[in-house]
Design a protein around this nucleic acid. Sequence first.
DNA 1: TAGATTGTTAATCGATTAACAATC
DNA 2: TAGATTGTTAATCGATTAACAATC
Lengths: 205, 205
Amino acid sequence: MNAERIPDIIIGRLPVYLRALQRMAEKGVQTTSSQELGERVGISAAQIRKDISQFGEFGKQGTGYHIPFLLDKLRAILKVDRIWDVALVGAGDMGHALARYQGFSNRGFQIVMVFDNDPSKVGQMAGNFKVENTDVMVERIRAAGVKVAMLTVPAAAAQEAADLLAKAGVKAILNYAPISLNVPPDVRVQHIDPATHLQRMTYYL
Amino acid sequence: MNAERIPDIIIGRLPVYLRALQRMAEKGVQTTSSQELGERVGISAAQIRKDISQFGEFGKQGTGYHIPFLLDKLRAILKVDRIWDVALVGAGDMGHALARYQGFSNRGFQIVMVFDNDPSKVGQMAGNFKVENTDVMVERIRAAGVKVAMLTVPAAAAQEAADLLAKAGVKAILNYAPISLNVPPDVRVQHIDPATHLQRMTYYL
DNA sequence: TAGATTGTTAATCGATTAACAATC
DNA sequence: TAGATTGTTAATCGATTAACAATC
């Protein structure tokens, strides 16, 4: 065990372990080893043991890790042993796809509101949600205590929307706009930009 | 200049610089400094200078970097000074959103074919593309010499689809399925999984 | 017990930062 | 020239790996 600050890079790998373990559990596998898990996710066994051991002694010598137990621990560490309400901002194609995506609920998230500033979209449906006007966003998010948002507006509108989200008390933004957001230090941002991801690979072609 | 192997972590930052510079260029800005660029993307000035200097001396003491020049260099390094044809596999909501996405062409990519194995989707339109049957995928990709693919099929179908893509000669896969893919060593994979990205932030909430 | 695999230490490896001479 | 900023070196910091005693 270790009470010191855990490096960000380790936190970043835990969701990958969690995802792989969840898949194994679905297949009914009860036990795994750092070796086996490492092969699945492409990370060395030593690193997996070291990462996990930052948080406790969750394995057993000779037998490895009991998957349901390790799942519980990882979910608790990552705070996805609960369901986070998520606000979706931007009801374009990507927003609609996310609103209809079935994969969030068993990973700790559920969309609860959808916003757009285009009057022709407000009032329309996105998945099961009625699109609301961005005018009421800060108020709605604050009242609901939502801390997590996904941003799928055009690049030109993204910074302004991020400012509103920060103002509304959102602390985690998943940004689909192809632009680096400027946010207060207590707000975390993750980027999803397909072009950027593709460009990380073309260098090697 | 430096002919040695460039670390992956540096290559991974170049698309971020490229994106920020492209945005500055659109606004008509001609020149920037490592300091200014660093503030925009949240990376130290020293690191930006070091990263860029791996590939040549692209700046000028006293004045910084000429943006159009640096853009050209970065595009050439990342091999996005051309347009890569991309195959899209999976014509669900996410596939449709990507097929209609306008942001690829000025970043070095264009979708040229869309596949799905669901007979009810084959023949339908996704963006401007007629969805083709996965049966003909290997042959079509091979014949067209496509090297880049985006994978938006359900998790259960992703590994099989990845195997076909590898067989077809694809060397870069952008994987939207929430599963770690197993591919030959000469194939690169990047993951886009919104739940994983969100889980990297909930730890800090 | 014998075999397997953890948790952890120490060694290695790699990345980041600070500082500054060079120079535009 | 004076001011600004690069490219690069050396120092620091942090992450990964290898190895193995502990133990299930």
